[in-house]
Design a binder for these strands. Structure first.
Length: 285
DNA sequence: AGCCAGGCTAAAT
DNA sequence: ATTTAGCATGGC
């Protein structure tokens, strides 16, 4: 028999920043709590002094899926110690103590980031919300409201391109449809990725239409835990340019090469701090 | 109105 | 080997 709630002790975990840092797109804040769905578990997460409180809509047998998703066993201090000791990194860390990397479901992550290209985060959220309403399975959250699971590859694969375009995803529709069909048809195995090294895994993901280096890196970092993956998007490009090469314009290749050599074994983690730092700094003006 | 958004692809230098 | 349009859609 399961439980409806649990307390996960963890220090140095900034829940709000983590769930609102562009890694995931289906979590929203409702007063104190953050509401979201992991697999078929509908949850409310609340920040506490020494950890995170979780409440589920239905009894849960094992909470291991939640520890996995939140990565509560990660020793953040040990990760931060591997970052380069330079002024930009120090500022990025200072701007957001307790920011973490999550560990997501590969399909949800892949589909989400196929939909992310040249879209603002608010719009990505909107597209994915529509996709959930139209292709996900309805369920009740803690407050009795109807919410939706993330659509399976099979469900998306059975859709038409027009139905997907109706979710406002535009030219990304054929890419999502292609990925869903390859995965549903077992031509592409998301589990097999785990057995590959970073370079091989990246190449494999990039065989999918609409998946280039940046999206592949997001999936490798956010879903599979390849900590050396370093997604370079417009924000990170701007961050590297302004913070590390303020004097001259560096090419995209130069920036990428710098990123892959400068940030150490947890480069992807460092990237998330830079990303969040740039975004919050821009918001503040 | 025009520019840009957690890019990728194919065409053009 | 690098740089550049075109791609849908919406917010500012």
């Amino acid at each position: 028999m399961g439980a409806l709630e649990i307390f996960l002790p963890v220090c140095d975990y900034h829940l709000a920043a983590t769930l609102d840092s562009g890694q995931v797109f289906r979590w929203r804040q409702n007063r104190e709590a953050w509401e979201g769905i992991i697999g078929s578990h509908c949850l409310q997460l609340t920040q506490r002094e020494n950890g995170i409180h979780a409440a589920a809509a239905r009894p849960v047998e094992s909470w291991e899926f939640l520890r996995e998703f939140l990565q509560t066993k990660t020793d953040l201090a040990a990760v931060l110690k591997t970052f380069p000791d330079d002024e930009p990194m120090r500022r990025a860390i200072r701007a957001c103590r307790g920011l973490r990397l999550l560990r997501q479901d590969p399909w949800e992550c892949l589909a989400s980031f196929i939909l992310s290209s040249t879209k603002q985060i608010v719009q990505i959220r909107q597209i994915i919300a529509l996709l959930g309403e139209r292709f996900g399975e309805p369920m009740k959250n803690c407050d009795g409201q109807t919410v939706f699971t993330f659509p399976t590859p099979q469900k998306i694969a059975a859709a038409t391109e027009a139905e997907l375009r109706a979710c406002k995803m535009g030219f990304r529709a054929p890419s999502l449809l292609n990925a869903a069909r390859q995965i549903a048809g077992r031509e592409f195995d998301l589990e097999q990725i785990r057995q590959l090294d970073y370079g091989q895994a990246r190449m494999k993901l990039m065989t999918l239409r609409g998946v280039g280096g940046k999206i592949a890196d997001c999936v490798l970092l956010f879903a599979y835990g390849y900590d050396t993956a370093f997604p370079v998007d417009v924000w990170i490009e701007r961050a590297l340019q302004e913070l590390y090469f303020p004097r001259w314009r560096a090419s995209a290749q130069r920036l990428r090469n710098f990123a892959n050599t400068h940030f150490g074994p947890h480069a992807g983690y460092a990237q998330q701090y830079l990303f969040h730092y740039m975004r919050t700094r821009a918001q503040a003006g």
